[in-house]
Design a protein around this nucleic acid. Structure first.
Lengths: 208, 208
DNA sequence: CATAACTTTTGACCTATGTCAAATAATCAT
DNA sequence: ATGATTATTTGACATAGGTCAAAAGTTATG
């Protein structure tokens, strides 16, 4: 995803290749606002490095989501369980924020689990630290508004695509949206993201 | 919809019945922030009453959307055209903001038209006035963040529902979401909103 | 490296929803 | 009201994608 507030929705901002130090994440903010020296310091103090191993559960749906993660390397997946099956809601790669949106913002449980599809490195920001930043840096409110706003179009696009395009078209659109990471995502997860069965997706790939 | 910034997505906040004066819209803001006297004054000066007649085009997709509308009475519809057919994206009733999100925020054309399903009364707020408010009242930024945030869950729910529920289930969900206004919306518009054909929706209704 | 444990593919058959066409019903303008 | 539009229903048939089951490939683990 794209915004700190709302995890998980792709919106294809281009990031310069190397995102190795905290500059990464500052660059991310500076797509939307100017970071003052003081804000940089306060941010730095609150961003904590975390790593997740492939397959590790990052958030259990039985817990309230109290942290957001900004990915430096790897892929996280947000999913929910329906009739015993894991349904992938979205995938998040380098330069994106991940959390369980409703849970994180409203401090209550929601249906989403988050796990790691690959070994991943991220920065972690706790919700109470974020609140501190909102209360003391109005430009953080603006960042939130702007970054969230940029996600809406993508959500609307996805809704439209679910309604009016065939499974094949949706798969091609998925490949475009997740250009950088789609070959690393298991087929079953892609299928549930697209709202089709594994078998159908396998047949789509078999053609051509 | 719910937020000034992003038009058109239902999120079921309850409004007290009478919304006849500017108190309506102040109440709306006060669901999220405290309105100072000064902000009320500045808002009042910038909110202009507008009316649209049934069938009237409120926004043409060939124009940039430069205003948001807060509905006091009536129903507006946001739609786009695909293969010559009007596809309804969402419907907006009393106590909701309407605009063409991407167009309004990014000052560029998008695919959405807006028209009036009924005679409607609204307040109009121009984008430049909104910018003024953002620049001078940090609490407006907060309002935007909070009100947008509350919409995300609904968008995600709708995406999930498009993927994993039958047309019949989707129709029932639609009835719940648009409890207050669904009987006033023509069947064809509902069908395209749900991503099914008119014929299928007619058959769903025929049962039971 | 060998066996277990997944993941992906393939096949046969089924069902919900779409398509096209025509008949009713409702609404609108004179 | 009355005919003209426009919206809704009904019917016959087509098809994309689902379901269930089994085979073939991959990946992990002792």
């Amino acid at each position: 995803m794209m915004t700190l507030i709302i995890g998980g929705i792709r919106n294809r901002l281009k990031y310069p290749s190397a995102m190795k130090t905290k500059e990464n994440i500052f660059e991310h903010f500076e797509k939307f606002i100017k970071l003052s020296k003081q804000l940089k310091i306060e941010l730095s103090e609150r961003l904590e490095k975390v790593i997740f191993k492939k397959g590790e559960l990052v958030l259990d749906a039985n817990q309230i989501c109290r942290e957001s993660y900004f990915i430096n390397k790897g892929i996280l997946r947000t999913y929910f369980v329906k009739d015993g099956n894991e349904i992938s809601e979205y995938f998040s790669g380098v330069g994106e924020w991940v959390n369980s949106p409703k849970s994180f913002m409203q401090r209550k449980k929601d249906i989403y689990y988050i796990d790691a599809i690959e070994n991943t490195d991220a920065y972690c920001l706790k919700v109470e630290d974020l609140v501190f930043l909102f209360d003391n840096f109005p430009e953080m409110e603006r960042y939130a508004r702007l970054s969230m706003g940029s996600v809406f179009g993508h959500l609307m696009e996805r809704i439209a695509s679910m309604r009016f395009t065939s499974a094949t078209e949706r798969y091609h659109h998925f490949q475009k949206t997740y250009q950088d990471i789609y070959p690393r995502i298991p087929l079953g997860m892609v299928a549930s993201y697209l709202g089709i069965t594994q078998e159908t997706l396998s047949r789509i790939r078999a053609k051509k």
